[in-house]
């Protein structure tokens, strides 16, 4: 394997050819925030929270997708980087409900971001509930494209959803707003699995949250194997009050890469449905 050496915040780091700056940062123990990046999806570099400064470049570069080059000098905590990250956080926080986005609050703190400074129009809208499996609360959608990628070539190859519209009005949609049941959706829930903001949520979880009964302190998380076909997908079962309330799969599982099908994701109702 051929390698190359670049400098990150003044320290040399050697990575394999083809590595991204994000991977190089990781190797240099530099913590780089991401929202739209995931290890099991193709980078789309749209959230821009991971931007870094590459010496000699006119603009900042997205660490998640920019390939490392030999001799590159990268700054990850320069004034420009901190400023852009801060404003990106403020833009997201002022337009999207980021309350369930993991990492958002700590990042706000880290970059001193105050979304209120940029308060204005938001993407708030009613929750879409058109099936018993999962709900779509696009008030929480930061348009990271992850669900589209998981529905498309990165996992399911179903193409039931796409980004539609343009600009601030862009949103994730089926064709002509068809309900998921009328669309190509195969209810694999891989979109739910990759959603970073809780915009896509298990109906079980949504109902518990609505009722004020969602309580992570009373939950256990256990990895096991799907009871259905012979693929052997790892299921991560989140259980509250002896009921399975969310099913995911680890993105680093060699079998699933984090993705499941409708049976493993939503078809475990028989477990709790049995009469004692």
């Amino acid at each position: 394997m051929r390698t190359l050496t670049l400098s990150i915040d003044g320290s040399d780091v050697t990575v394999p050819e083809g590595a991204t700056l994000l991977e190089a940062c990781k190797k240099a123990h530099v913590d780089t925030p991401t929202f739209c990046w995931a290890e099991n999806l193709t980078p789309v570099n749209v959230c821009r929270i991971c931007v870094v400064e590459v010496e000699g470049a006119r603009t900042l570069a997205p660490a998640c997708s920019r390939k490392a080059e030999a001799g590159m000098k990268v700054l990850t905590d320069s004034e420009r980087v901190r400023h852009s990250r801060k404003v990106v956080l403020e833009l997201l926080g002022s337009s999207v409900d980021m309350s369930l986005a993991k990492d958002f609050a700590p990042l706000r703190q880290r970059y001193g971001a105050d979304p209120k400074r940029l308060a204005g129009e938001t993407v708030a809208q009613p929750v879409k509930i058109d099936n018993d499996q999962f709900v779509r609360d696009y008030s929480k959608c930061m348009l990271c494209y992850k669900c589209v990628e998981a529905c498309g070539t990165d996992a399911q190859n179903t193409f039931a959803i796409a980004v539609a519209g343009r600009g601030f009005e862009a949103s994730i949609a089926t064709e002509h707003q068809a309900s998921l049941g009328d669309s190509a959706c195969v209810f694999c829930g891989n979109c739910v699995g990759v959603c970073p903001t809780g915009a896509l949520m298990f109906k079980t979880e949504f109902d518990l949250r609505e009722a004020g009964k969602w309580d992570e302190s009373r939950q256990t998380v256990t990895d096991t194997i799907c009871p259905y076909c012979g693929v052997g997908c790892t299921l991560t079962l989140r259980v509250q009050d002896n009921a399975i309330v969310r099913v995911t799969s680890p993105s680093d599982s060699s079998v699933t890469g984090g993705h499941l099908c409708v049976k493993g994701r939503f078809g475990l109702g028989f477990v709790g449905g049995r009469k004692p």
Binding site: T220, T222, I225, G232, L237, N242, I244
Partner: peptide, 22 residues
């Protein structure tokens, strides 16, 4: 697969752990 401990073996002969969750 979720009320007991044990193993299963998938199509690629991979022995995997199942665990009690409920």
């Amino acid at each position: 697969f979720c009320e007991a401990e044990g193993t299963v073996t998938n199509s690629e002969r991979r022995v995997q752990r199942v665990r009690k969750a409920v």
